[in-house]
Design a protein around this nucleic acid. Sequence first.
DNA 1: CGGATCTTTGCAAGTTTTTGCACGTTTTTG
DNA 2: CAAAAACGTGCAAAAACTTGCAAAGATCCG
Lengths: 265, 265
Amino acid sequence: MARRAPPAEMLPQERQQRVLQRLRSHGRVVAAELAAEFAVSEDSLRRDLRELAAQGLCRRVYGGALSVSLPATPLKQRRGEHAGRKLALARKAVELVGEGQVLLIDAGSTNAAIAAALPERLGLTVVTNAPDIALALYEREGFGILLLGGRIDPRIGGAVGAQTLQELRRIRADLCFPGACAIDADTGLWGFDSEESLLKRAMVEASAETVVVATGDKLGARATHRIVPVEQVRHLVVEHDTGRATRVAFAAHGVAVHRAPPAGE
Amino acid sequence: MARRAPPAEMLPQERQQRVLQRLRSHGRVVAAELAAEFAVSEDSLRRDLRELAAQGLCRRVYGGALSVSLPATPLKQRRGEHAGRKLALARKAVELVGEGQVLLIDAGSTNAAIAAALPERLGLTVVTNAPDIALALYEREGFGILLLGGRIDPRIGGAVGAQTLQELRRIRADLCFPGACAIDADTGLWGFDSEESLLKRAMVEASAETVVVATGDKLGARATHRIVPVEQVRHLVVEHDTGRATRVAFAAHGVAVHRAPPAGE
DNA sequence: CGGATCTTTGCAAGTTTTTGCACGTTTTTG
DNA sequence: CAAAAACGTGCAAAAACTTGCAAAGATCCG
């Protein structure tokens, strides 16, 4: 089956897999290079790239493609990108928080907005692996903060890896906000990165309830690593313009769907 | 000095990403420099800058471009208190850092200045209990970052306590920067808080060498909790106007004293 | 087996993007 | 104010891209 032979003859799908591997390891691929390497015309290879891009597995650019899982856009930019919409979502999400609860907040720009929107008078304790979230909270007052340590992945903006996972095992939280890369009513919650997904999963399992806050582009999207099935998600906060069909689909799986009001101060 | 890798063929979009990275880490870029580095004409590079500026990702200026966001966070204001003096100290302190070393950096505004002054090309690994330091480093490039978790004390701005201590036990560092509350040539290093002092002590013991960076008001002062005796301090970085008597007193205990130049760019 | 159908592939034609250069303009500097 | 550097624009060539199409092979079904 598995032929490790030289690029003799390769199945189309196999070729696409190799392209993905290369994308993951190098962060970019050049169409002409791969065409030569796989001994196919550039046309075929461009078709591959187009397909992969259509599935959201890479970003097509002139001359080749760039990896998408390692977000090329810096954190600050992502944070500012849909500031208004994220604020609306965050305000809706914090309504689910109760007095004295322990919250588990993952790294990510949407979650940073949620942390910023948390009310101060509730005596909340926040557990997070994201330095920026911890920083934002201790510059305000009235939060207990527990920082999860570990190796920091700059692309993610927070700690990931075995050590973080281990620390997390000591925690029991009331509410969990795992940053979602993609969520689907049938297949559940998905992440782009392997370690990141493992951590999110552990977060969900360490919490009594899970809240997923998703901007429109994450609904129905797909990513490479499964985090948890949709049944483990208790609440879903979406934007006001989310289709009714989508909301019903999630509700059918026992998810409480909350709609944020339209953006705008 | 160390020039960048050979200008292997680069995709246009990829080039723009690199420009953004550079912008983020250096705060500014020079058109001619980048053109040479990427081996393209200045025209092409100017086009890139124009596009990025059109997307609001940078600010176009004569000769190059500037980073668009330099918002003064509350913490930075605090840091700005003695910004000039701390910058001078920090620059002197980072001269002690060698290639590929593992640094243990405690929380504190002076240490934040040191972290900001660290050069990127040395392949450094930074271990810290301070979210703001971790944040500053992963928004630049080229640092390995290990975050120490634990309960965060807002007054200190970093993790302290038993859990942090425990994580620290797994670390061996080359150089340690414990934030000093007070240092005295005879009695050694002192801290204000019990737990904080315990942590600093553990940091010193986990490192091959210790560097204390002290503004004038900390020299000869006293606090309540002893951290380590002065013999365990290898380097002391002080301001230019530190008295000769003080410097000699530390030198007599085997401490290498380094004087920072007067403040001012 | 045989024919219909689908997939994959390479080619050709036409389009879009990128790039460097020429030329005139604007900004900076002394 | 004048020279130098940086800039913007138009332009033409090259590279990369898309689309349509037909041939070759695989697959399916009766």
